[in-house]
């Protein structure tokens, strides 16, 4: 067993993959906490769809420039498209919710359809997109690892460093405006770090499952915590655990790492949810009056 683990850790391919998984597991729940807080859980999904068009455009540009590796520009393309898409979604959201809903849907489907169309023009096939849709951590290069390190560091720096300000606008945008906070700039900051997170996580879990890595650890954490800070910290820890263990399993079992990681996260959610409600039932049996004793009680006529 020890030999097996040592073998895995000695494998340079696994080393790169594990570093990428660790960073993604740490960074994705940070932005996920803000998205859940403002009830935008599906924003990551939307950005993921748009990023697919970016992958295809990067591919197309790479072909036109005659690069030897036709997908060399796929990740930069995804980064650019994801940022543009995320900022566009944020600006639409700011205008009003009703029309925003439809505009978001248009953006999502446009992103997927655009990706499929453009990749065929670029001389690729939809099959080439599969690696991005479902992740391809086994093909992570040293360059990819460095890009992941830089982008995750940026996400962590902004997401954790500015947490009070980002919490303020996610918690109560009206109060934030009345405090003179640069609400639009901060909203766009959240959109941009969400976009960066999506592209960082793209190689590990794939664009279709990125959102799960952002949201599910937060969903688990908020079952067991009562503070924002602890929810974020717990979600980050959980993200690392499921990413690293999910990936490690695929060293021995031939399954998709992205799918394994997400299934693990959801399994943890199920266990915690069931466990939590069992504990809740036990607590309810203990005699405790949840109502506070207040002076202003209703005076009843003595009988």
């Amino acid at each position: 067993m020890v030999d097996e683990v040592a073998g895995m850790l000695a494998d340079p391919l696994m080393q790169r993959a594990l570093i990428a998984a660790l960073l993604v597991g740490l960074a994705a729940p940070v932005i996920g906490t803000y998205l859940v807080q403002r009830r935008l859980s599906l924003l990551g999904d939307g950005i993921g769809h748009v990023a697919l068009t970016g992958v295809a455009i990067g591919w197309l540009v790479g072909n036109v420039m005659g690069l030897t590796e036709s997908d060399a520009l796929a990740v930069p393309g995804a980064v650019v498209a994801a940022i543009i898409g995320a900022v566009a979604i944020e600006l639409v959201r700011e205008r009003g919710r009703t029309s925003g809903d439809v505009a978001l849907a248009l953006l999502f489907y446009g992103g997927i359809a655009g990706g499929v169309l453009i990749i065929s023009q670029a001389g690729g096939t939809s099959a080439n997109l599969m690696a991005y849709l479902f992740g391809s951590i086994s093909t992570v290069t040293t360059g990819d690892v460095w890009l992941t390190v830089v982008l995750s560091a940026l996400v962590l720096l902004v997401g954790v460093g500015l947490r009070t300000a980002l919490f303020a606008i996610c918690h109560d945008e009206e109060f934030a405006r009345a405090a003179g906070l640069p609400v639009r700039a901060l909203n766009i900051t959240i959109a941009v770090i969400a976009a960066l997170t999506v592209t960082v996580a793209m190689r590990v879990v794939g664009l279709l499952l990125v959102s799960a890595l952002m949201i599910v650890p937060v969903a688990v954490a908020q079952l067991v915590t009562s503070s924002f800070r602890r929810t974020m910290a717990t979600a980050m820890g959980l993200g690392v655990v499921v990413c690293v263990s999910g990936l490690s399993i695929t060293y021995w079992q031939d399954v998709s790492p992205g799918a394994m990681i997400v299934v693990l996260a959801i399994a943890v959610y199920a266990v915690v949810a069931v466990g939590g409600s069992l504990i809740g039932v036990m607590r309810r049996r203990s005699p405790h009056d949840p109502h506070p004793q207040v002076a202003d009680d209703v005076h009843l006529a003595p009988r």
Binding site: V36, G161, T164, A179, G180, L181, S227, T231
Partner: peptide, 25 residues
């Protein structure tokens, strides 16, 4: 005063310490 992610009373009050000229508490 409650939203998607749980937050404590102290956290909500602390968000009042920042303003247009101070983004860090």
């Amino acid at each position: 005063a409650a939203t998607g992610v749980p937050s404590t009373a102290a956290e909500v009050v602390m968000s009042g310490t920042i303003h247009g000229r101070r983004l860090l508490p």
